[in-house]
Design a protein around this nucleic acid. Structure first.
Length: 590
RNA sequence: UGCCUGGUGGUGUAAUGGUAGCACGAACGACUCUGACUCGUUCUGUCUAGGUUCGAAUCCUAGCCGGGCAGCCA
């Protein structure tokens, strides 16, 4: 008997719970959902939720609906709908694309009969359907309205005329019970009439609300007759101008889940007190299908970054970064522009696990998976960020020595390319020291070093300008140490990268670093005071000429420096612009 | 003085009454035509006190400490 190869399928308390529900026959299949509000961009913190929801769908042959939780038109915009949809597609591409739940364009929940009772259900689009779109909570406004009428008829909801200020006063505080609204005992007929008139636009914003009738003395604040509907005389980005009353999150969310046949509604820890309300609303209606259930897990909070929309917005608005897709930002668009592969984001989310404990995750773990992904995938190239001229005095000008370079040593059968060694080359300024510190393996006066893929050179002379700055290093090339030559196996302690001074490209290279200098900038009194002044440095680098054909999809390792990707600022035919995604690990303490 | 949650190395997690393990990190070493990768060694942990039990991170009691809850936001 041979052992089964054990796939590293994640296990956590939510997956256990899903498995248990399946085993108990509570659901025919698994449906999860990812419910962003279209009022900002997705960021690193969302990745855990996306990977959890899509991962569970994937592992159970289910689906994960992309649903916009768009119940607050004053904060939302179609711009975000499109950006978020694109981010999700990119993030799950090649992994869980087939689990992405979408619906036929314009589809609404359909009436059906279940066990002799009327019911509504919105089926997903069949795979490969021509015109599809995400789900929208706002597509359920008619249904939600009908459910609200039903709640009123059952004596479980009422129209309240209290002002926002009075509503707050009547609610009490966590230590003190609230008081019943003076409008709590209105008759069903009056409630029905008033609710219809709210919908008809007879009252101004804030004049009335529809509230659930639960328990104003509940120790759970979210059970003190929470609001179901408020009046907002504004048009909606998706639903148009048909409505002037809009449902609140708690009311819309559980019912949206139900209408879509969601089985497991996964959200973050702060919604724990809302769970009782989620269950109350669904339980107060006569719904024939199995009810969805809410389960909570801890948000992802990486160090050295800021995740809240408000804080990211401030960085954008104050011009500290260049926009929502600035590569220093933890937004998905920013990360993507920086060159981070989606697979690295997924691994980070999966490897940090799922728990109910709110902690911080060392960003070093992200950097580790990022380097690991890139190490496997990136094509090696030579580039010099801070060039210094080096002359091989025993090579005639104009002579070109072809050297063979490996494209990726991590490949099983690595391919190679040819690079040109010429009399004049550039090396990294850091790789030469006139007065070397201890254990300096690189080039120094009288010292030897290998030019990677070429030969060993010896430093004979330093040329300086009037100010004493080094302008040129003069060396002798030991051509018999090239690969295939008799002395190819000669050992030297250091190997450095280089590019031909005559066969190279100029490029703008943007060197990014962490945006903040402290692990938890969000805990500072003012995070602007802990900004890393060196989060971006722009240099003009010298690249080997094969990089001329780089495309945005390529991932490169500039040897001994780090991983780089072409930036979208690169205009066709113009000078190349590269972003540094992450440096190579550097264990040589400087 | 309310209710809801939660506490395992520096960090993230596993162990579901039976050897406290894994990963990141850090330190040192080996290898190296990338001071990368890889490999090896080492480092640090069950919040506290009682109890149940042959046996407790796990169950019970009490305490300590942390997070959350009073938007017509989600």
């Amino acid at each position: 008997m041979t052992a089964e190869p054990t796939p590293t399928r994640p296990s956590d308390f939510i997956r256990d719970l899903v498995a248990a529900d399946l085993a108990a026959g509570r659901h025919a299949g698994i449906v999860t959902r990812f419910p962003p509000e279209p009022n900002g961009y997705l960021h690193l913190g969302h990745v855990r939720s996306i990977c959890l929801n899509f991962g569970i769908a994937l592992e159970n042959n289910g689906r994960c609906n992309l649903r916009f939780d768009d119940t607050n038109p004053v904060k939302e915009d179609v711009e975000y709908v499109e950006a978020i949809t694109a981010d999700i597609r990119w993030l799950i591409a090649g992994w869980a694309d087939h689990c992405l739940g979408l619906k036929p364009q314009g589809a609404q929940p359909a009436l059906q009969t279940v066990n002799g009772r009327a019911d509504h259900y919105l089926a997903p689009a069949t795979p490969g359907a021509a015109t599809v779109e995400p789900f929208f909570a706002s597509d359920y406004f008619d249904r939600l309205y009908a459910y609200a009428v039903e709640l009123i008829k059952r004596g479980k909801a009422y129209v309240c005329d209290l002002s926002p200020e009075d509503t707050e006063k009547y609610r009490g505080s966590p230590e003190l019970p609230g008081r019943d609204s003076p409008f709590r005992q209105r008759s069903v007929e009056e409630n029905l009439d008033l609710f219809a008139r709210m919908q008809a636009g007879e009252f101004p914003d804030g004049a009335r609300t529809l509230r659930s009738k639960i328990d104003m003395a509940s120790p759970n604040m979210w059970l003190r007759d929470p609001l179901l509907y408020r009046i907002r005389h504004v048009a909606h980005h998706h639903a148009g101008d048909r409505w002037c009353i809009y449902p609140l999150y708690d009311y819309a969310h559980c019912l949206s889940d139900y209408l879509e046949g969601v089985t497991h509604s996964l959200c973050s820890l702060e919604f724990i007190p809302h769970r009782a309300l989620y269950d109350w609303i669904l339980g107060s209606l006569d719904l024939p299908r199995p009810l969805p259930h809410q389960h909570e897990f801890a948000k992802l909070l990486p160090t050295y970054t800021l995740l809240s929309k408000r804080n990211i917005l401030r960085l954008v608005q104050e011009g500290i970064v260049g926009g929502w897709d600035d590569p220093r930002l933890p937004t998905i668009v920013g990360l993507r522009r920086r060159g981070v592969p989606a697979a690295a984001l997924r691994r980070f989310a999966i490897e940090t696990g799922i728990t109910t404990y709110n902690g911080v995750t060392d960003i070093a773990l992200f950097e580790h998976v990022l380097r690991d992904e890139l190490n496997r995938a990136a094509t090696r190239r030579l580039a010099v960020l801070r060039p210094i001229r080096l002359v091989l005095t025993n090579l005639p000008a104009g002579e070109i020595i072809e050297c063979t370079a490996t494209n990726n040593p991590q490949d099983e059968s690595p391919t190679t390319r040819t690079i040109a060694l010429t009399r004049e080359v550039f090396i990294e300024a850091d790789d030469f020291a006139e007065v070397p510190p201890p254990k300096f393996f690189r080039l120094k006066p009288g010292g030897e070093v290998r030019l990677k893929y070429a030969c060993i050179i010896k430093c004979d002379e330093i040329v300086k300008d009037a100010a004493g700055a080094i302008t040129e290093i003069r060396c002798t090339a030991q051509l018999d140490t090239r690969s295939g030559q008799p002395n190819a196996d000669k050992k030297v302690k250091g190997t450095i990268h280089w590019v031909s001074a005559t066969q190279c490209l100029d490029a703008e290279v943007r060197l990014y670093d962490r945006l903040f200098t402290v692990p938890e900038p969000g805990a500072e009194e003012d995070f602007l005071k802990v900004l890393n002044p060196k989060s971006l440095e722009v240099v003009t680098a010298k690249l080997e000429s094969s990089l001329a054909t780089a495309t945005p999809a390529d991932r490169f390792q500039f040897e001994r420096l780090g991983y780089f990707a072409l930036d979208k600022d690169t205009a066709p035919g113009a000078r190349l612009t590269f972003n540094r995604t992450i440096t190579l690990k550097d264990t040589w303490a400087k």
